[in-house]
Amino acid sequence: MSTNEMSKTLGPDGGGGALVVGWKANRWWIAGLIVLAVAPFLVYPIFLAKILCFALFAIAFNLLLGYVGLLSFGHAAFFGMAAYISGHVMKEWGVTPEVAILIATASMAVLGVVFGMIAIRRQGIYFAMVTLALSQMVYFLALQSEFTHGEDGIQGIPRGAFLGLVSLESSLSIYYFVAGVFVLGFLFVYRVIHSPFGQVLKSVRENEARATSLGYDTDRYKLLAFTLSATLAGLAGATKVLVFQLASLTDVTWQMSGEVVLMTLLGGVGTILGPVVGAGIVVSMHNLLAEIGSVTTIVQGLIFILCVLVFRRGVVGEVSAWLRRRRSTKKHPRAG
């Protein structure tokens, strides 16, 4: 099957070269960092930390869908399992948060290799079903194993102290910790996308047969991309546990896998900022609709349908398309 349609939704960051240089390009990065730094004084920091965790999760997912054209319907497995592992080692072994995150993230790299090797045996549309089935296996394992505490989940996880020195117990300190992790993850994905490796991924997405004929072992590239994506999803899950001090079944369900798909689709598939915007909208929506039972699910479903039928570029995709149109009419004013 072709993934060209998805590639058409590529935003302005899709094609770029090396890391941007100069003030004119850097001003966006600086503005972003300032927003991250100031935001917790304007909005409830835990809410922001939640958004950042999900944004990182969605960025990880988008690395696979947006840049390789593979739709994983099982990314909750990595997100949720990392949460359990990180929570477990924090609570039972008493390690510091950064060690817990490292252990959990590394475990998801291993799980990513295993699942990736199974899932890339099938192309395109099958890939979604295989990843969904594999993640359902993880869900049942989480339901039945002892260390996850089944339906109860791991509760009362301490936030600990960063490097054993800086306590993360206050809302502000945990927020800045999460923001730090998010920025690192974001930069990492940005570099990957704009590296030669990222270029190969894009050529696999556009035309796998051609990439193969050019001598690329596309399966290896796909496996590596899948593993990176799983690892980052794990990083997001492990970090999220610190914020909420709880690891529960919710994070390993297929609904959670669906949610990250929604965030990416709504924000803009294949754009670097799309997943962040999508995560912001979906998390805010959850907070607004939390009171009214199944309404969240219904609204999510409706957004899915709308996105697919009329809004395939997502918020960021639409905005950047609009900006490009405006810029080109400025450059080439109509002859009159």
């Binding site: 099957m1 549309i125 996105c307």
Partner: peptide
């Protein structure tokens, strides 16, 4: 379009109907 969109649409439908 890309076949993935059909999967996403029916996923959305499933959410709506089950939610209702």
């Amino acid at each position: 379009l890309d076949h993935l969109y059909g999967l996403l649409l029916t996923f959305g439908l499933a959410l709506v109907i089950e939610g209702v």
